[in-house]
Design a protein around this nucleic acid. Sequence first.
DNA 1: CATCCAAAAATTGTCTACAATATTTCGAGT
DNA 2: ACTCGAAATATTGTAGACAATTTTTGGATG
Lengths: 225, 225
Amino acid sequence: MTEQAGISIQQIVEKVWLSIAERRLRPGVQLKEGQMAAIFDVSRARIRQALAALEREGLVTIIPNRGAFVCQPTVDEARDVFTIRRSVEGRVVARIGASVTKADLARLRGHVAQERTANTNDATTDIIKLSGGFHLLLAEISGSDFLFGMMRDLISRTSLITAVYRNTARFNCGPDEHAEIVDAIAAGDLKKASGLMEHHLEHVESELDLREVRDMSHDLRAALA
Amino acid sequence: MTEQAGISIQQIVEKVWLSIAERRLRPGVQLKEGQMAAIFDVSRARIRQALAALEREGLVTIIPNRGAFVCQPTVDEARDVFTIRRSVEGRVVARIGASVTKADLARLRGHVAQERTANTNDATTDIIKLSGGFHLLLAEISGSDFLFGMMRDLISRTSLITAVYRNTARFNCGPDEHAEIVDAIAAGDLKKASGLMEHHLEHVESELDLREVRDMSHDLRAALA
DNA sequence: CATCCAAAAATTGTCTACAATATTTCGAGT
DNA sequence: ACTCGAAATATTGTAGACAATTTTTGGATG
């Protein structure tokens, strides 16, 4: 029953998130419950829960009696998210440095290795997932559930922002900068690690093209496939 | 039908939150959908949405196929929340200082005044709502939607933590410390304001009794009334 | 007497149907 | 021809019924 047949709520959320991150779903598009229920072949009840989850991740806005729409972050909001990220992730890195284990470092290095292979293979989907996953992994290792949850939020919103505002062909984070941060942590150089993280985030932000959005596609079925 | 008769989802959330903050609902208690539906005289669907909202606020934990339970924050998590709050609220105050208007200050002073009257009247419910509201108002004035949302989360969790761990009769925040912070902001002294905020949060944290929780009441109906 | 297993009860998860609201369409009036 | 308004359509919100899972209860067995 819980998974009697259809796709799970979390899978729906992930599909939508990916569609947004890959720019197949444009900001402002309405996510109609009926359409989505037909596309994923589940009842509207489950779609509703997925939409609620997407709302709390900051990817869609739900207007009562109107429906769910993909968020359109403003330029100010975009800058805001990066400002907060610099602050929060600086704290994450500092926290990690105090108590990092060999196993933690191995996980981080393994993750960066995955990012490299995805990058060389041009596996767009994997690149998107992994580049956010690195920052999430740092938060997890920091050991604070609250920081982890906050980073989840921030990364979701960053995905949306980069999807809307990026102008280059490449995606959020390069694995090289991630590797440098891991090295600094491994060396116990907290100050350097924090600095690298801040620089890394500035670099990502600097690649954004901060103009207003204009168009938006309407073919929900093609976007979610 | 949106509000055809019954209590709204947000009202349910607020009732539960208040019940937790006033210690009528103890950590670990299961919030059974059937009971709550009967108590509030709405269908389980609405209760489910309310529980999902409470989960994202960090007040309850939902275990699949098991149900929703009032969270039991550990001592570590409690300290964690206060650490983050010191960091985030320092940023909030700094942000405010740059762009505070006369109207903002009037709102802050008005809020503190409300707190004072609630305090002199021993209006417990109001005190709880207003003491968190002050910090939320600061976040709102800061102008960052994301900071506002984060503070919402942090304040919810703080309410739970103080409900569980407080040992004194008094509640979270005294209006006097709030008033001092407003004065510092009004004087344009950001450094002082940040320091006062940090001190204020340390003061609140210092009044907690950090031992393990043990008992938990079971009379859901009496608690939610 | 404790332990384990099966049946019964309770609880959660999902779906379908219906009610209320919002949007669109189409026509009347100026 | 354009604007305003009412019927028709479409979409969201809610309730209740059913299926699956979990928990409890009761008894049989070692």
